[in-house]
Amino acid sequence: MATKKRYGFVIDVSRCIDCRACLVACSVENQVGMKYTRIWVRDLGVKGDYPHLERTFVPYNCMHCDNPPCTQVCVSGATYKDADTGLVLVDQEACIGCGYCVDACPYSARYLDRERGVVDKCTGCIQRLQVNQQPACVATCVGRARMFGDLNDPNSEASLALKNADTVQRLDYELPDGTHTGPNVYFINGEVMDPAVLPREPKYTTAETAWRRLLIPAVVAGIGLSFLGQATFFTKQLLEGEKEFEE
């Protein structure tokens, strides 16, 4: 989906020190419940043979996909891709907390807030964006690993970082229907293609699957038959006039 602006994150993996200032900043800014987090730093673990060890930290959050699978399953229309900013947002007033989208996100970047009965996720701190502030995680990033900006604007900090990067990786995912998620989070200067962060197959809840596969055909058939029956009589009525029915 082409949007006016295309806000996204550029993550310099070489600069992340896993201090988690971003996690706390996000939680405070967005009043995220104590059991939850909207963003993560994924630790790819200590690798290599002693003493030649390596360890990579991957800051991680919603990819604000071009073609997000989460919006595809949202029944109430609460989850949507914002046409102005390109951010994938949840209208929590409209969300009924069923969690279809949580299962459908290949990046596991959403969670169900049981206390509030709604789904929550990274919003790119849109409330800060509106007053020209960087998202809380980006503003406080001690290692300057997190960058954010309009990827449609070639002069944004994020676009420039992307242009000057040594390596660029993106966790794109091909959906069952052949389309791609088109994530708007770019990882630069580091290797992130690791099972700890790679996208998973979207999951669809049994309820949603049953609905789609079983109940829709059944109801369509029922209503169809009923309509057909009624149509037959109506046609007959038109053709034969009303006389027949009068005694």
């Binding site: 169900l112 009965g117 709604v118 309820a207 109801v219 038959l225 009923s226 029956g229 009624q230």
Partner: peptide
């Protein structure tokens, strides 16, 4: 009242709501 019910129930409530409406509507046409 989705805040008080478990998500599994809410997940099923949607198709149930829909299929119930479907059943009534099918009859309603007649």
């Amino acid at each position: 009242f989705h805040t008080v019910f478990p998500p599994a129930l809410i997940q099923w409530a949607q198709p149930v709501h829909w299929v119930s409406v479907g059943a009534v509507v099918a009859g309603l046409i007649i």
